[in-house]
Design a protein around this nucleic acid. Structure first.
Lengths: 352, 352
DNA sequence: CATTCCTTGTGTTACGTTTCACTAAGGAAG
DNA sequence: CTTCCTTAGTGAAACGTAACACAAGGAATG
């Protein structure tokens, strides 16, 4: 493994000059010198040692992404776009999967900070960010996907989020507009701000239409600590089975995300209900499979490319310390209702 | 940011002793000393600087995973299990997404090697690994998911793979056993060993049954360089639409993976074909959604947890230089046919 | 009592890079 | 001729840690 000194010797210059070449300070030398150095680098197949560079400069040129659950293709899509946005700015992306477990998230964030990554994007939207306070106190910048402007500004640096309330409301309004009166929600643990927001949106829209969202219509399943979406589809299936087995089953379902919605399809089928004839289902996210599913899933789309672009831009600006003061730290984006085949008019005169 | 010297001063010992405490060489000191050091570490909230440690020791305690396409939940599952296996051994996992683009893969591998990661797992199974030869020459150990023992031993350190030929054959045999005679395959670019293997398996099984797999029944779509699975479902849809529009449409489809298979569902529906009544479809991988889909997808399951466990074990052994000579470098695992609802008996007396 | 050994540490160097102050050479201005 | 500026490049000091050789003090041994 050859170092900067070997290159320097071979090119007949000093290590400083080689460093200057590598780091693009070309104006400080003759073209001839630069050419010799580049040639030496080429011949020795020299690659800068990132650890040493980082140790010295404190910069890592990487950002981190902590994903709630790699099993949900939605987060795969997010990762894909975050990576693109980061790469455009010369940053690499380190992806970690924490299954929404604060302990695991803390460990990863700790490891990243320790390895010189000073900016991370957090995909989960926990109720409290207190467990990250130590890290942010030590210089970590945390950008939150799915976190709207709120009282946690001291620990969260910036955030981009779809308006979850609005999204939930759009979903519910769509069902209400189709004549549905008994609407239920299906979710895993409602212990993230995004989920609470979505459910609240449903509740508000229903309230505006004079329909109460009773507690027993908010189906909630799953374990206690660390809840990925690996089982999301399975939970959706269970939830719908249970809801449809009741005396007074709902005719419309708002699933907490598309994985739950696709699971809900299966749960409805298990009991002989047809989607959408017997039960209308709305998802959230608009993953690729939503369009492919049978029937194609009506869902609330999050504009992922735009969101990740903004988030990465803000995070990088903070990491580089070049954040414009007039730029808002938190940005809300608008979700969009995509109507497909999984929703239809409620049957008239449903049995009470 | 406090360093090892601050801790040493606070505990009244030398930096070496602190280092010994951190690295578990507890037998070299009195319990009392150790306690004082730990206390100082606690009070100062000291975390070792990973860059410095790595620079000094050359070890990074991380392995890398280069994923063909984060948009395919199958790779999400793989990432999940690789991460578990790595963590159990004290390694962190750095995940990168390269969309099967050799240039991107090279860049990421380069970045990882430069940052001290000497072992990576490669998810794609390209026809040639030559583009990695430079990296392996510089010390990178590459473990291949999906690569069977072959002539590339000099560049690939170890590998675990499902027997793709067998998997393809199982899929085809299943269809043949159900009376299907016109069987087609649907895939994106057939330019990985895994895809070639799967198609060959189909071909071999058909040949054994006296059925030729004609070239026009091997539908292949997609672009030229870098082909993710983001569009996998869409390609599956297109492929099946085209195949079913022919004069002599197939009655059975083997999709190159589950995403294509789910896309194939949509393609069949687009043309009014019912699955499985009019067309039987077999997938490959067994992603979570395979069971949820309507109808549930018959597919070839890869035993992901076992595969990742073995792969990580072998890779870590090589990285640590403690590889037992008797351990085989390449392991084949057996795929399993999971029969669900997307396949059924071919209609008797199909129109010629 | 002298020697050897063990325990419990310590001091120093090196890892490969960046950065900053500095300089040698050449030219322009006063 | 001197002074000053610019260009092109140098030298050395860090960054925070691990590793190795070594040392002080006491116990065991001959």
């Amino acid at each position: 493994m050859s170092g900067i000194l070997d290159v320097a010797k071979k090119a007949g210059v000093s290590a400083s000059t080689v460093s200057n070449v590598i780091n693009g300070r070309h104006e400080k030398m003759r073209p001839e010198t630069k050419r010799r150095v580049l040639e030496a680098i080429e011949q020795l197949k020299y690659t800068p040692n990132i650890a040493a560079r980082q140790l010295k400069s404190g910069q890592s040129c990487s950002i981190g992404l902590i994903i709630p659950s790699v099993a949900n293709p939605f987060w795969g899509l997010v990762a894909h776009h975050v990576e693109r946005a980061a790469r455009q700015r010369g940053y690499r992306l380190m992806i970690c999967n924490a299954e929404r477990d604060p302990d695991v998230e803390t460990r990863y964030a700790e490891a990243m900070l320790g390895s010189g990554i000073t900016g991370i994007i957090l995909g989960s939207s926990p109720l409290s960010f207190d467990y990250l306070r130590d890290l942010t106190a030590r210089g970590l910048k945390v950008a939150a996907f799915d976190q709207r402007v709120n009282e946690t500004r001291d620990v969260i640096t910036c955030g981009v989020s779809v308006d979850h309330e609005l999204g939930g409301a759009l979903a519910a309004q769509h069902l209400i507009g189709l004549g549905h009166k008994r609407i239920a929600t299906v979710s895993g643990p409602i212990r993230t701000n995004s989920r609470i927001g979505r459910i609240n949106g449903v509740r508000m829209a229903m309230a505006r239409a004079g329909l109460p969202l009773r507690d027993e219509m908010i189906w909630q399943g799953g374990g206690v600590a660390g809840f990925g979406d690996l089982e999301g589809a399975e939970l959706g299936r269970m939830g719908v089975r249970e809801l449809l087995s009741r005396d007074d089953p709902p005719t419309g379902i708002v699933a907490i995300n598309d994985m739950y919605a696709l699971g809900a399809y299966a749960g409805a089928r298990d009991l002989g209900f047809r989607v959408p004839d017997d039960i209308s289902i709305v998802g959230f996210d608009d993953i690729v499979l939503a369009e492919i599913a049978q029937p194609a899933l009506t869902t609330i789309r999050q504009p992922v490319p735009a969101m990740t672009e903004m988030l990465v831009r803000m995070l990088v600006a903070h990491v580089e310390g070049s954040v414009p003061a007039d730029e808002p730290a938190f940005i809300d984006v608008t979700p969009q209702l995509i109507v497909r085949g999984s929703t239809t008019a409620a049957r008239i005169l449903q049995p009470a």
